[in-house]
Design a protein around this nucleic acid. Structure first.
Ligand SMILES: NC(=O)c1ccc[n+]([C@@H]2O[C@H](COP(=O)([O-])OP(=O)(O)OC[C@H]3O[C@@H](n4cnc5c(N)ncnc54)[C@H](O)[C@@H]3O)[C@@H](O)[C@H]2O)c1
Ligand SMILES: NC(=O)c1ccc[n+]([C@@H]2O[C@H](COP(=O)([O-])OP(=O)(O)OC[C@H]3O[C@@H](n4cnc5c(N)ncnc54)[C@H](O)[C@@H]3O)[C@@H](O)[C@H]2O)c1
Lengths: 257, 257
DNA sequence: CCATCTTTGTGCACGCGTTCACAAAGACAT
DNA sequence: ATGTCTTTGTGAACGCGTGCACAAAGATGG
């Protein structure tokens, strides 16, 4: 997904589908739970239920990693934990910096889920001079003037951005220039990065809006049954000064599913 | 749509693909920025660049909403803001409750991005008796004993779970029983919900693991790039108007559960 | 060893999403 | 009106992801 589109599936041949990669952490978490309860083996059916996915999908996902199961028995939990961890690169230590230690940044710094896997908070960085030296989650906050030095000295390749939206792109640019090649962005902005840098974003507002869309639909389904034949919806336009054609121009009342 | 295939095409809402719905908030944010700068119209090319997507994709997305553009000119910003807002259900007010007011829950409560759209924090709920009555972000925390009452009295249909993982499912069950039909889950757990309830999850740990995977792959490629020079392929695409390519920052970091 | 039973691994079909490419639509000038 | 120029809206092709269904593999029992 990230690179290589008009080329041969060079990365695809040995590569794992992006959708599968996104599910591996899910499997890993379920397997870790089983491991802690000393369960020796699991079937694809059981594990799929624990991870909340289809069992066929899980088996296909695992097939990209190799044949790690035993027919008639299932998968060895410990072995699979190791294989997935290795595939995800969690057998090594990943130093991470968090930039922007406000409400969210502080919460992230305090989050125990970082260290539970191979991630280590190498540094907390903020532009506010008043925060410099102040410990958050036991780690002293450093000023953003030293960002480049911090990145290079700690060999950081993963950065988390929790600054206000306006500061996100400049911070991103500095992180990338300093050598960071993976960014997790919490600021509600589209980040522009050069080729080879991965960006993933977490946007609470977008999630809520998606939920609202479906929520509206659920609420509208009841009313829709009543006024099913009502076609022309008198759209009340707020603020817009331009006159437009009405919606639902040639939309069939019932969509051909 | 999480699990279980109903007799109806639940995925195909009103002819609007799920992938399109997930991008509408992105367009809306870009349009809001243009609106604040009093830009009257935008072309699909400009707006697509601002939203970080392909212009053809944007046009196709908009085509699901209707024909709101003018050929040779582009789209009327204000009008489009209204249309997308209406489609997403943001013209109405959505009361939201946050359950689990710890580090993350408090950060969410303080987040201004809630009110910027039609979302309103109706209540903060926590199980810790010591927190009851204590104001967070100007809102007094209420005890979870009153959860059902709070939900019904405020007509809440969207709930945010920011409790520890172990408490997430019980909290979810209570929310759903009280009438909540959309849940945004921050706890690292697979939530089981009845038909008709939407769950979206935000999992920081998963995001980091996905980044780690690609990071590892990048590191491995560099090692192999020394001798296998044919693999590198400097992807120079002619005709593209983009100079600074934003690779794949638009991959949603949150997945429908 | 053979039979049976369980569960994996995967070939295959299908639907969704993305992208290209272009005709049609409208703005604007003459 | 007519022509040119810009940009939308969409048909069509393609690739990816998903889920079904089943043969193969191995365990287990006699
Ligand atoms: N709080 C949430 O729940 C939440 C949810 C979703 C998204 N977000 C987004 O996350 C970001 C942070 O949210 P917050 O509530 O923590 O905001 P905040 O204002 O509490 O914290 C922002 C911090 O970033 C620092 N900062 C500003 N510019 C900086 C720079 N150039 N370099 C380094 N540090 C800088 C500030 O000093 C401050 O400490 C915002 O973009 C917000 O929209 C927050
Ligand atoms: N902090 C982060 O950055 C972060 C990031 C990703 C995920 N998470 C997840 O979000 C959740 C919250 O994280 P946190 O750091 O805020 O934890 P936290 O311990 O600071 O806060 C948890 C809060 O939930 C409350 N609580 C516990 N049981 C409850 C119940 N049954 N009903 C209502 N409230 C209850 C607790 O009293 C506490 O106030 C955790 O599941 C965590 O894994 C946190």
């Amino acid at each position: 997904m990230a690179t290589g589109r008009t080329h041969r599936p060079a990365t695809r041949s040995r590569g794992i589908p992006e959708a599968t990669v996104a599910r591996l952490p899910l499997y890993l978490r379920a397997l870790t739970g089983l491991s802690e309860r000393s369960v020796p083996t699991v079937s694809s059916e059981e594990l799929a239920a624990a991870a909340g996915v289809n069992s066929a999908k899980l088996r296909k996902d695992f097939s990209y990693l190799g044949s790690y199961g035993t027919r008639g028995v299932g998968y060895d939990v410990e072995y699979l934990v190791y294989q997935i961890s290795r595939e995800l690169g969690l057998t090594q230590d990943w130093p991470v910096v968090i930039v922007g230690i406000g409400n969210l940044g502080a919460a992230l710094a305090n989050y125990g889920g970082f260290a539970s896997r191979g991630f280590r908070v190498a540094a907390l960085i903020d532009a506010d001079p008043a925060m410099a030296g102040k410990p958050v989650a036991g780690i002293p906050v450093q000023h953003s003037d030293d960002l480049e030095k911090i990145i290079s000295e700690n060999g950081v390749s993963i950065g988390v951005i929790a600054t206000p939206a306006g500061a996100a792109q400049p911070v991103c640019d500095r992180l990338v220039a300093a050598g960071v090649t993976s960014i997790l962005n919490f600021a509600p902005t589209v980040l522009s990065v050069p080729e080879g840098v991965d960006v993933r974003k977490v946007d609470l507002s977008i999630e809520l809006q998606i939920l609202a869309f479906h929520e509206q639909r659920k609420a509208g389904e009841d009313a829709a049954a009543a006024e099913a034949a009502d076609v022309v919806a008198p759209v009340v336009r707020g603020g817009a000064a331009v006159d437009r054609k009405g919606p639902d121009g040639d939309m069939p009342a019932v969509m051909p599913a």
